[in-house]
Amino acid sequence: MPTDSAITTLQAFKKAEKLMGNRFEITVVGPDQAWAEAKIEFAIAEIRRIERLLTTFDEQSQTNQINALAGIAPVKVNREVFDLVQRALRISTITDGAFDITYGSIDKRLWNFDRQMTALPDESTARSLVRLINYKNVILNEADCSIMLREKGMRIGFGGIGKGYAAEMAKALLLKEGVKSGIVNASGDLTTWGNQANGSPWTIGIANPDHRELPFSYLNVTDMAVATSGNYEKFVQINGKKYSHTINPKTGLPVTGIKSVTIISPNAEIADAMATPVTIMGIVAGLNLINQIKHLACIIIDDDNRIYTTKNINIQ
């Protein structure tokens, strides 16, 4: 029988909602449903607010104003957007550009990735496609809180960091609202805090790249974020080789060789932002990077189902 010795009648309450183009699932542990639902609504409102701020689907969003004035003029933005861009640029520096918020500058007129693709572009064509991707051309002006993109045609987007940022902000709000335990799961990029209703830590499954609905492993965590990036969702096969929908911003060619990368970190924004660059950098450079950063761990599964991990993960 469950909860044999626990006195509290705490329960976990869940709600799923489509937000930022993704399925968010918010879980809070609390004494009753009405209380939990009210808290979850707060979190949803917060994520909607962030969505409006960062979306590229609304012409009026600050993100789109920056893109529209690329190569022309700086755009004054909210402090929140400015800070987020600043943090994103820091991750770009650390990953030598494997993470880049100007990733959306890729030239889609010449080559659009889809499942019908039968050949890769040659190396120089590929490189020309990504010539506008360069985080160093994002000019931040601290004094008037403005952002300018140096080259015409450049675009920024928050696809690689926005979900993690929203999850982290929703968690911070819920904590402020007195929610002691919960999970904000942004389509698999999730952050946990506290414990389950029965007092034990949260159990987080890591999706099996071959059975995306099933975990290949699971870990017990609290106050940790876990994010996974993988090519098993979207890929194309050319001459028997699997290519991911992710384009290497250095070469312009699709990423190959890695099925999935999982990052474990106390912060969901970092976990989200780090998963894709490790896929792009490859096993050797990626592991070398994560191994050096404190409080980060990483599990990589390659195309042959081999598992590579950072040194702070041990098989016993």
């Binding site: 290497n248 490859g282 098989i315």
Partner: peptide
């Protein structure tokens, strides 16, 4: 971080130092 492994997967686990996959990622 301890990873408790199923035998089948354990055999495939490789530590960073010994891994030398052929990659040309530019990084």
């Amino acid at each position: 971080i301890f990873l408790t492994a199923a035998m089948a997967f354990a055999l495939l686990h490789t530590q960073a130092q010994t891994a030398t996959p052929k990659e040309n990622t530019g990084f």
